[in-house]
Design a binder for these strands. Structure first.
Lengths: 137, 137
DNA sequence: TTCTAGATTGCAATACCGTTGCATGCCCTA
DNA sequence: TAGGGCATGCAACGGTATTGCAATCTAGAA
């Protein structure tokens, strides 16, 4: 993707497009699985761990990416769909492969509705499915 | 609950009933919310943190309790229902209160079915709902 | 009862992840 | 060009999970 397009993606979320951020955004777009801070760090050895951490944090605050807690111990991050506001109705299932340890967004698998007892006020939902992914099957 | 009953619960899961384990089991039964290692530690100051950790780990391996990753950073534990094998069909929703930070099992709220793409093999499911619990509402 | 093997417990130490403070550097604007 | 604000990089810290090893306990055999 051209730099201009990347810059537009950042600007659309009100994120100032710095060199670092463009690199990280490009990297995230190239992934088909969610990435941990450590993975991103290893992909760009030049980059500082903390700066990467803060870059991801900024991206998340601005709604460009969302984090996934897959139980592996390390938080992972993946790009949001265009127009996603991370509201409950935008949420999708995440799948963690117990074989290759990768974590995937399944944007087409919506989280099915369920009924909580009354007086339980729902704000967020997170559905982690685990098993063996298509590549490892 | 009488000690004999506690011992039977442990024996039924092939766990040798030691004094420590009986205490921890009794403690777990008294909770209405899932407990973290830290909370258990504070409840029994005499007990060693690592022993508690390993006790919980043993309980989990034997299917007496299950752990819940509620995103708070600390793993929490709660008793399994009687006869639970922690298979996908045994699974229930967990609710984390963003106000009091407690995490509850909702054994009556089953996780609704959803369709993964073919060749994705499902082994575990974890559905975390977050919001405001009935007590804090 | 005594002995022994194996399991359990307790202490110490470690690894890892997330997070914050502070100083420096860059960019944009007035 | 000078100044303010944001971004970056380095160092340090805190918390949780985890392992190694030695001491202790338990259960079963002799």
């Amino acid at each position: 993707m051209k730099i201009k397009e990347l810059e537009q993606l950042l600007s659309a979320r009100h994120i100032k497009p710095t060199a670092m951020r463009l690199l990280v955004l490009e990297y995230l777009q190239q992934q088909n699985a969610a990435v941990s801070l450590k993975e991103a760090e290893e992909a760009y050895e030049k980059a500082d761990r903390i700066t990467l951490y803060r870059t991801l944090k900024t991206f998340e605050e601005k709604g460009l990416i969302h984090h996934i807690d897959d139980g592996s111990g390390a938080t992972k991050y993946a790009l949001c769909e265009e127009g996603c506001q991370c509201a409950p109705e935008d949420l999708h299932v995440h799948f963690h492969c117990n074989s290759c340890q990768k974590t995937f967004c399944m944007p087409k698998v919506a989280i099915p509705a369920f009924q909580l007892p009354s007086r339980f006020n729902l704000q967020e939902i997170n559905l982690m499915a685990k098993g063996i992914c298509a590549d490892c099957f």
